[in-house]
Structure formats: C-alpha cells, structure tokens
Design a protein around this nucleic acid. Structure first.
Lengths: 409, 409
DNA sequence: TGTAATATGTTCTGATATACAACAAATCAC
DNA sequence: GTGATTTGTTGTATATCAGAACATATTACA
C-alpha cells in the first residue's frame, strides 16, 4: 500500500507542478488565467510563477496588447526555451532525433537513414553520435532535461527494457540503459503508439478529451494507446494498448483472409499499397493515391473490407473504454478519409449505443511531429511532476558524456 | 481545465482521507502501521486519528496483546460501525437491500422477491419500504452516509440516470433521483459489474492488483468492470466495461452459433443450463452440475466451445489493458472451474506474450456479498474522499423522509 | 479629456498543518 | 531488574497559502 502522505512540501510541489503544467499545455497564458484555473490566490500564483522564473522554466512577457478587457493587464507566461528534451524514434530504416522545447514544439529535428536493420547497440551509437552533434549546435546554451525514446514495440515501463519489437527484431533489450550510458542523460522509453496517444491528447485533436483511444497504422502493424481519465493507461507492465493483436468477429465470411487473423493481419498498409499499386508511401501520399483510385472497384472493395474490420475493433474498444474521441493515425487516417461515413455507420451499428453516443472519430493532427512530441513529453514528465528538484538536478547534471549510466521510467 | 490548487485545507483533507482509506481497506491497523504506510509524522497521524475518532468514523482499541514486538504497543484503529451505507441491487425477480458498515462488511441483508418485472417507480417504492423497515430496526443509532445502487445496466455517472438496462427493460430512467426523493438520502448509482470489479479490487481477489479486469456472467448477459492504476475505469459517461457486447474472432467456424454474434450471444448461462438439463441455478450449483456431468460429451463440447470463445475475449482485453489479474464471476467462474487449464492455455496462445505474462485468472471471491459491497463502496466514496465535511453533512442531514431529493455520483 | 469602474499586481500579516525534538511510557531481551 | 527499542505525547518551529489593503493599468462613459 505504497501511498505517501501530504506534507507542506508536497503542497508547494504540486502547485508548482500544476502551474508549470498549465503553461506547458497552453503554451502562453496570462497570470490571471492561471489564478482562475487553479483557484489559488493571486499572491500565491505570483509566488509560484516567480519560483518557476527563477528556475528558468518559464518567462514572463509584457501583457498581450491585443486583449481588450477592463482592468489591469496581466503578464503573459510562456515556457522557457532553455529547458529541452531530446526525442528519439528508432525505426527499421532510420533514426529520427529531435530537440523539443518545453512548449511542446520541435525546435530541431534530424533524420539519419540507415541501410540495414540496426541492432540496439548500433542504434544507440547513432543516437549518441547525433546527440553529440546537437550538443555542438542547437543545444549550446540549453539544458537537456532527459532523453525520450519512442520504440515501435512493447517496452517495460519499470526499467525501459524493450521486450518485443518484432519489426526491429529487438527482444529483451535494455535500451534505456544503453542510451543513458551512451549519452549521459536520463532516459525514458515508451511504446510509440502510446506516446502518440499522449501527444494527441496534450497537443492534438484529443486536447479536450479525458478519455481517448489512439490507433496508429504503421508499416509493421497497428499500435494503439489509451488515455483514461486524462492519464495514459499503461497497465501493470506498460504494455497496454496492443489493439493490433486483437481477434475480431466479422459478419461477412469473405471479409476475412484468414480464419482467426488479428486486426493487423486483416487491416494492413501492405494490402492497401498493393491494391493501389505502390511500393511505399507515407500516410498523406497513400490517402491521395486512394482518393485518386476511388473509382477502382478493387480499391473500393479492399478499403471497405478493411473499414468494416476496423469498425469491429473500434466498436469493441468503445464498449470497453467509453471514450470521447477515437483518433486514427498513419494509414488508418487514410482509410478513414476515404470513406468516413461508412466507418462511423458500422461502428454505430455495432457498439453499445450509450457508449458510442458523442464519440468523435477523427484523424490525427500532429503529423510527423507526433512521436517527437510524445517522446519529449515522456522525458519532460519528471520535470513537470516536480519542477523545483528536477530543474535543480538537470542544471547540476554532469556534463553529458559516456560516463554515468542512469536509467528511468 | 478543471484542476484545483492545493492549499493547507486540502492537505488535511487528503491526509484524513488517506488514513480513513487505510483503516477502511485493512479493517484493523495499529496507529504505527498508519504512520509507516503514510510516511507522515507520528504526531500528525495521532492528530488525524483523533479527528476521525471525534467524527465517529473510527474507534481506537487497546493494543493487540498477541503481537510480540519490542517497543511500546500501538493502539488498534478500526472503522466505527456507526456510519453505514445502504446497498441496493434491483434485479428482475427480486430487490436486495443491505446495510454495510465502513469496514466493508454486510451488517444486514434483506431480499424481497417479486412476481413480476418491476418498473423503476415500483422498484423505488420497494426500496423505500425496505429502508423504512430498516430505519425502525438495524439503523437505529447508526448514521446512514448514503444509498448505493448496483444496476444491471448502463448508468450515466454524471446524474445517475439508468440509460439502458435491457434485462429490467429500463431505459433512460432517473433512478438516482427517484430513490433519493423516496428515501431522503444521497444516492449513488453504478453498473453492477463495475461495482463488482471495485469490490473484488478492494476486498476480494483483486486486493493486490493495481490493474484488473472483472467479468461477470449473469442471467442477462456478461458484464464487466475495469480497474486501471488502482482506480475504477469509467470512461466519459461511466459506461466502460461492456465486454459482453464485443464481437470476437474465433478460429473454428463451428464454434460460432451466429456469424457475427457478441460474446454474450455465444457464451451464455442459458446454453450451459440447457446442456446440463437445468432450468435455473446460481453460480455454485451450476458449477456442481457441470462437474457432475463432466463425462457427458455434449457438456464437454459446449463448455469447451464457450471457454474457447471466452479466451478470445480475455486475450483481447489483456492486450488492451495489460492487467495483473482477471477475475471471473457468476457462471463464468463455473465455466473456468470446469477446466482452468484449457482457458489459460487458450489465452496464453492468443494474447501478446509480454502482456499475458504474470496474469492471474481467478474466480471471484466475494460471493453473494459482492454487489452489496460494491454498491456500498460507491456510497462511501464521498465520505472516504472528504471525511470531515461528509461526516458533518451526514450527521446534520434532515431526518430521512420523502422530502428532499438530492442525487449524486 | 477626465472620472468611475474593474481587474490585477504587490506587499504585509495571519492562520494552520505538519515536521521536529524532547520526554514519557510500555514492551522485549538478557 | 536494567537496557534497548519502539511508540505515544507535548510543545515549538517552519513554511505555505489566504486575505486584506493599497497600487496600478486598463476600459467605459460623460
């Protein structure tokens, strides 16, 4: 029963965390907006903001001249750009690294293509190399809070071990430890789709949803993430959200290509590329190709087959999780864009009516920044939870080099 | 962005809540155990316990003589039996009402059978009648905190309207309001299976699980509830957990009786009763009947068919929610007991290995008290969240009568 | 242009919850 | 019976937030 009591320190910590969180999510707020959002006293908010300014976490700007309300103008508070995280996304054919500011914006991004499937050690070496490069460039004068890695596979949340990343062929690899040792920074690792869900929840189309499902269609399969009561749903190990492996009931026998296939066996990018005659395409290009071929009966048949199967997956998920919003990313967004009405109708028919009412099915909004923002968010988590001590430890962190090996999350 | 800042009042409130919660869940603890569990100072815990004693919420007993440790013995703290909730479970053929103490034990229970399907108004009248009877009996000298109702259907958590209870044929009925008006107490309403999940989580086999799935097989279908990160998962409307309506993929064509049936179409008590030749039976009697007929090929075939289908539902749920424990209640417990190994093997084959490792599949433990405890827990929620003000308002509540009509949850 | 109204910033004081320290008390170990 | 250990009890100190009073900057309106 590991719950800790609240003392006066925790009040300050939580209030600081709350103020920083508001500034982080909204990007720019007046101090009086913070006062109203928190319900705290003006004087208290002033003190909290002053402490965050002293920690170099937020900056105070002149009141926004464009607002025209009665009363003394309130200064604008924004996240400082001095504290950043490094977001990393290792994929089969490339490693993407980004520098993300506390405002949730990608300051800098860098993609390094590779010609063969990387081992964890090789990926780590590339990451360390890119980080070293960044340290000589954009990171000068900035403080790196942590490194966040979005991995296309299952990650054990307790220690950052990649348990199962079939696409990369990584199994039980202590990636957090490897990257921490190589870069010298604290490292947080998570599943890519779960981090995508987090990103869309905080900065994308899931902004105002407390309960949200995110499904991402990638080259390797379908990943997912769940936000429940405004917080990421991880499960005991952190593996939650594996919608792609679910087995679904489909009413038309010919809809299924195998008798007991999983969602990602039946609904796949490869089949879509196949039917439109492409060898590869990102989400937007695939969407365009599908639209161009919308009169082709074979295309229509395959798309509607996949939509019907996807609708079962969504219905099941809606029955169990009762979300406000369902966000579709990757090729699933292309699938949805081809025929939104059919998908919505199918889901409406199959889901429990009360659970479905009010559900918005929408395509993802964050595009290529999605995983950068998600991974960065994971890395910012400690700072957002306890601004004072995390900022202090980040500032006093030894100069990043290949010496110390911390790990986290 | 409705989040409130912490002030000193909230510290006190949360600490009181935490101490009462510990006493509530563990039933009997020494004060020093509370000190260690909360991390608070001895003197602080002493003050908190003293306040709870003053509120008549806990009682202090002499130190337990049986403990033999060095040092001064610490007094035992237990929940007081003066504060109770009234738990209600309307069913098709009966209304069950229980008086449940803060310790989570059912002090008194009373079942009234009815000969026809009740309307919400009729059910309310019966509930009010039983409550009046209780007020002349066991409730004398006790304070009723609230009434909790476990409904076999979907309940809107915001206002306690029963949206969809097909078994009872109740649709969009403001049951919370009706019962509150009729009894004069604050009323909290929830779905029966979700409350079962809560009960098993707090006092049953899910005690040490932070992430848990509960599936209950009832006469009317299959209901479910989810605990995620130690808290009930409700979704936006409170409808989460409707596993029974999910559509599942099954590998053997003959396993399915309809091409696109839901879980509760395929896995049903009626089919089991049918195959063993009974017209009705509760969980235990069905379990016995199945065991007795374990050599009958027709019984074996139907049970294994249902187990295979159930395994798909569990695998899907495990993939998405990554729980520690899966609890099966009602006839699903009987199904499980018939052949635990087959079910576990099927799930192991179909679920994502990392998500399945360490999952315990277990039958429910609380038996017939399950829904009483779950409904009571819902009713206790306000008191547990804010002991000081809730206890004060319960004490000053107008004498229960058919005058005031509050509702809650 | 000037005054009133409104909202917010700033500063100081007060209330209060918890931590801490010192002492007292009750047990076990030897 | 004495010492060690743990916990209860009491009084003091610290820190945080609320609130009041005043200052300031804007809009509204005559």
């Amino acid at each position: 029963m590991a719950m800790l009591g609240n003392n006066l320190d925790s009040v300050r910590r939580e209030n600081l965390s709350m103020v920083l969180g508001i500034v982080h999510r909204r990007g720019r707020v007046s101090r009086s907006q913070i006062t109203h959002a928190t319900g705290l006293n003006r004087s208290t908010v002033a003190a909290l903001v002053a402490e965050l300014v002293a920690l170099d976490l937020v900056v105070v700007r002149e009141p926004d001249a464009s607002v025209t309300t009665v009363g003394r103008p309130s200064p604008q508070i924004s996240p400082a750009d001095t504290h950043v995280t490094i977001a990393v996304n290792p994929e089969l054919d490339a490693v993407t690294v980004g520098v993300v500011g506390l405002a949730g914006t990608v300051v800098h991004r860098l993609r390094r293509d590779v010609d063969h499937a990387l081992s964890p050690a090789e990926a780590t070496a590339i990451i360390a190399d890119i980080v070293a490069e960044l340290e000589r460039g954009v990171l000068v004068g900035r403080t790196v809070v942590a490194v966040g890695v979005a991995v296309p596979g299952l990650v054990r949340s307790s220690d950052g071990v990649v348990r199962w990343a079939p696409h990369l062929e990584w199994f039980d690899q202590p990636l957090a430890e490897l990257v921490a040792t190589a870069t010298g920074y604290r490292v947080a690792i998570g599943n890519d789709a779960s981090l995508g869900a987090l990103a869309e929840h905080l900065f994308g189309v899931g902004r105002d949803a407390t309960d949200m499902i995110y499904l991402n269609g990638g080259a390797s399969g379908i990943g997912g993430g769940v936000i429940a009561s405004g917080r990421p749903l991880g499960g005991v190990g952190g593996y939650a959200g594996e919608f792609g492996q679910n087995r679904l009931g489909i009413d038309i026998g010919t809809d299924r290509t195998s008798p007991d296939g999983t969602l990602e066996d039946e609904v796949s990018r490869a089949r879509l590329l196949d039917v439109v005659g492409l060898s590869s395409a990102d989400g937007l290009r695939l969407e365009q190709a599908l639209a161009d071929a919308s009169e082709n009966p074979a295309v229509r048949a395959e798309v509607s087959r996949q939509l019907r199967i996807l609708s079962v997956a969504l219905s099941n998920a809606i029955n169990v999780l009762n979300p406000q919003t369902v966000v579709l990313g990757g090729f699933l967004a292309a699938l949805y864009a081809f025929d939104p009405v059919t998908l919505e109708d199918c889901v409406a028919q199959q889901a429990v009516p009360a659970a479905f009412e009010g559900v918005r099915i929408v395509p993802a909004a964050l595009g290529e920044d999605l995983l950068m923002i998600g991974a960065a968010q994971l890395a910012f988590e400690d700072l957002l939870r306890d601004p004072a001590s995390a900022a202090a430890s980040a500032a006093t962190q030894p100069t990043p080099s290949a010496t110390d090996g911390e790990n986290s999350q």
